[in-house]
């Protein structure tokens, strides 16, 4: 394999992603795990940039780090006091969870094995095209319009549900 600067940076990002992902599942302290997840998400965003998906990378950061992780941390900090949590696991859950994880792992490994040249798309000399236009056209064409609309309706339902739950009951 040709060892260029790009492969060096790529494996740097891969290492950051995997190491921090391992930290997320092994660290006892929930807040530490959440911040390790932030590093993982950044690593994945870096890998997206390597795949010429700059818009996806920025979306990843803005949605997961700026939105979801902040909410996770909010939840954790509001309920702090039991940070060093020992999680009790039943045997049935262990079997079920292990089975599902194993199936997912197999699926991912097959995808990885069947994808040619997935680490260095920027190397083959093709110009870096803006992906925003393509994404916009795909989402607003017939191809992905229905899933897009369904997802937006789902989010709207979640929004209304959250507003309903958090709203004070007014009785007179």
């Amino acid at each position: 394999m040709e060892f260029t600067l790009k492969t060096f940076i790529f494996y740097g990002f891969a290492l950051i992603t995997i190491a921090s992902a391992l930290a997320v599942v092994t660290v006892r302290n929930i807040v530490h795990a959440a911040f390790a997840l932030m590093v993982t998400l950044f690593g994945v965003a870096g890998l997206y940039v390597f795949l010429q998906a700059d818009f996806l990378a920025a979306t990843q950061v803005i949605v997961y780090v700026g939105g979801i992780l902040v909410l996770i941390l909010f939840g954790v900090m509001m309920t702090s006091g039991r940070l060093e949590m020992r999680i009790h696991i039943e045997r049935g859950q262990l079997l079920l969870g292990g089975g599902i994880s194993l199936a997912l792992l197999m699926l991912l490994l097959t995808v990885i094995a069947n994808t040619p040249r997935w680490e260095n798309l920027t190397d083959d000399g093709t110009p870096l095209e803006p992906t925003t236009k393509q994404i916009g056209e795909l989402i607003l064409n017939e191809k992905f319009l229905l899933p897009f609309e369904v997802a937006s309706v789902l989010l709207l339902v979640a929004l209304i549900g959250a507003a309903l739950i958090s709203r004070k009951e007014v009785r007179d």
Partner: peptide, 14 residues
Amino acid sequence: FNIGIFYIMAISSV
């Protein structure tokens, strides 16, 4: 890059 303002929003949300 062509996503300039989106990048700025992403970074400042961190």
